[in-house]
Design a protein around this nucleic acid. Structure first.
Length: 220
DNA sequence: TTATCGATTCTCT
DNA sequence: GAGAATCGATAAA
């Protein structure tokens, strides 16, 4: 994995990240996920249509600053008062674009991920496929926080990211989740996932988005 | 399996 | 002060 991979805008990088692995090390140990679901977000300076659903759609702010940083770094934000989520920053420094990691399958550090997800409800352990299902859960399983990981280089410790040895050939695409208005509708089929993978998060249409949008599937 | 709803606090206007 | 790139519990089917 080299930095060049992240130089194109997020829309180009996003589908190619499916089935890549991301490892995050910490004092408590390491957890690795195989990425199964992502979303692309474009912002200031990226080509293509204006993306009204992006945190960096208009200008640089304190929160989105790291999205304007160099490609191949992390953008971590705090969401809904309780969750963190991580983006892989794409496109050259000074422009803003990122791939949100929405879901994955834990392939290393299962017990640590489980402990972080606080886990055991009355003797019934959380299901394996639920550990990193949804962006907030994925970040929690990996131990990601804004304080520690925002703006950090993904190509150096504590991160280790690798593309899949055999790339995903068929990719499903559809509207982004939780995004209001047209940005969450069929005009932006910028969510990509591995078809049939049980770790992909449940689809919840963005407020104001059409309810019956058929998912699109395409072959790379 | 899908749908609805409350919790909780940060960020930007 | 409004709204948010969410989650989990609960209810309904």
């Amino acid at each position: 994995m080299d930095r060049e991979f992240f130089t194109p805008p997020a829309l180009e990088a996003a589908p190619r990240l499916l089935s890549a692995t991301l490892r995050v090390d910490s004092d408590a140990g390491a957890v690795t996920v195989r990425i199964t679901e992502v979303e692309a977000y474009h912002g200031v300076g990226t080509p293509g249509p204006y993306d009204p659903g992006s945190h960096s759609k208009d200008r640089r702010t304190e929160r989105n600053a790291s999205m304007f940083g160099p490609p191949g770094h992390a953008y971590v934000y705090f969401s809904y008062g309780m969750h963190f989520a991580i983006n892989l920053v794409c496109s050259p420094e000074g422009t803003a674009s990122g791939v949100l990691l929405r879901a994955g399958e834990i392939i290393e550090g299962h017990s640590l991920a489980e402990a972080r997800r606080s886990v055991r409800r009355e003797g019934s352990p959380i299901k394996h496929r639920m550990l990193a299902r949804g962006p907030g859960n994925l970040a929690q399983a990996l131990g990601i926080t804004r304080e520690v990981h925002d703006g950090r280089d993904l190509l150096a410790a504590p991160f280790e990211i690798r593309l899949a040895s055999s790339p995903i050939i068929e990719v499903a695409a559809g509207p982004r989740v939780g995004v209001a208005g047209v940005a969450g509708g069929p005009a932006f089929p910028w969510r990509f996932w591995i078809p049939g993978d049980r770790t992909v998060s449940a689809f919840r249409p963005g407020r104001g988005a059409p309810r019956t949008t058929p998912d699109d599937s395409r072959t790379l």
